[in-house]
Design a protein around this nucleic acid. Structure first.
Lengths: 213, 213
DNA sequence: GATCACCCCTACCCGCCGTCGGGGCCGGAT
DNA sequence: ATCCGGCCCCGACGGCGGGTAGGGGTGATC
């Protein structure tokens, strides 16, 4: 049985959500709250599996308490009428694993609760779309260029260069990979030549731009 | 009516997908393909609304043709058995707006087709979860943390550390800022102490994470 | 099966990096 | 005025970083 707490300032909305969720055999609403303080209190006392948290609330809003609610244990699904980018960003950074619009059909709402209770995530389709595009448009130019440049490296060389990019010294790398320090230097040296780099710092920059860590 | 093309090298899978999708009143499968070339041809000739594209295929795989299929017009949903990060990243950057596992229930599969046809996106819950976490870790969180760490540096030190992060050597930095190389070393050394870093590489990493260039 | 090419490893030499100690300068506190 | 602390600057030592030359192993081509 999945235990849920519903948080919204309008009791009509709370009642509606409760009705929808209780209709599912495997879901039970164990508590309700009308504001941020209530949400926190219930999260700590009832230890629910999932908290449905409204974004807009008088006083402290849902996005602001979200981090604390999350750290109290439960999975958090944010609920809102508008899927503003601002909301989504804050919610996801706060650790929410769900972001749904209030016009979500009952069936999908229940499905979302099950999904997050199982450790996965569920977003409204419009939100997913934006998240994807912001992910895809996140300067693939530089990253791809960096990966292109790193391509000529052999597997072993790349492995070592990645350690370099973590800020490790040659001796440390040798220790971790169980090889001679001289060998590490040789690999680094070849990598420098292949990539036309002068420093190991430039190697580190490349690896970072390529998002390899 | 949503017009769909199904691409998979196993005809059994194609038949299954066709069966599932045709069961929906508002969806029709207008074509099938068994490889990358066929997928491209059908995408151009039939101009479907949605293409279901298998990731693993003999010859050119799904991820590789995905960009071309996308640019041909249709919305692309990638299908796979395993949700490897590698797959997901490539798919999303290729412009796919869906990424589903092959064990997706029929009802959700049809729902996904409708969702992407409507201009939105649909990911498998496990994929959504990873995308969110990679988004959260990537956001301004890291950048702000890095800036926090760089805060104790003096203006001059930061100026020099930024040059270090560009991959320049001490001699070069000295030349550009018209000072002795020994001075550069001193600044770098103090920066290392303040930031509890062992290498200049670690300085470079911090500056990069802080987005200062 | 010999050649070739590539990758991985190792040993020695020199230049750069980083530490240590110290000097000149300015602003605020006693 | 003096002291003090912070910032910027400099010169000289030890150690790490990088260049060079070369040996052993493996797979492809013929």
């Amino acid at each position: 049985m999945i235990r849920v707490v519903v948080v919204d300032d309008e009791h009509l909305v709370r009642a509606g959500l409760r009705l929808i969720l209780e209709a599912a055999e495997d879901i039970t609403v164990v508590g309700e709250a009308a504001d941020a303080a209530g949400a926190l209190e219930q999260a700590h006392r009832l230890r629910p599996d999932v908290v449905l948290l409204d974004v807009r609330m008088p006083g402290v809003d849902g996005l602001t308490v979200a981090p604390e609610v999350v750290s109290a244990g439960p999975k958090v699904i944010m609920l809102t009428t508008f899927d503003l980018d601002e909301y989504v960003h804050r919610a996801l950074r706060a650790g929410a694993v769900g972001f749904l619009l209030k016009d979500t059909p009952p069936r999908e709402l229940a499905a979302a609760v099950r999904t997050v209770a199982a450790g996965n995530a569920m977003l409204a389709p419009t939100v997913t779309r934006r998240l994807i595009s912001s992910f895809a448009e996140r300067g693939p130019a530089r990253r791809d260029a960096a990966r292109q440049r790193l391509a000529p490296l052999t597997a072993r060389e790349l492995e070592i260069v990645r350690e370099v990019a973590r800020g490790l010294g040659n001796a440390e790398i040798a220790r971790r990979l169980t090889m001679s320090e001289a060998t590490v230097k040789a690999h680094v040296s070849r990598a420098l030549a292949k990539l036309q780099a002068g420093n190991r710092v430039q190697l580190a920059i490349l690896v970072h731009d390529a998002d390899l860590l």
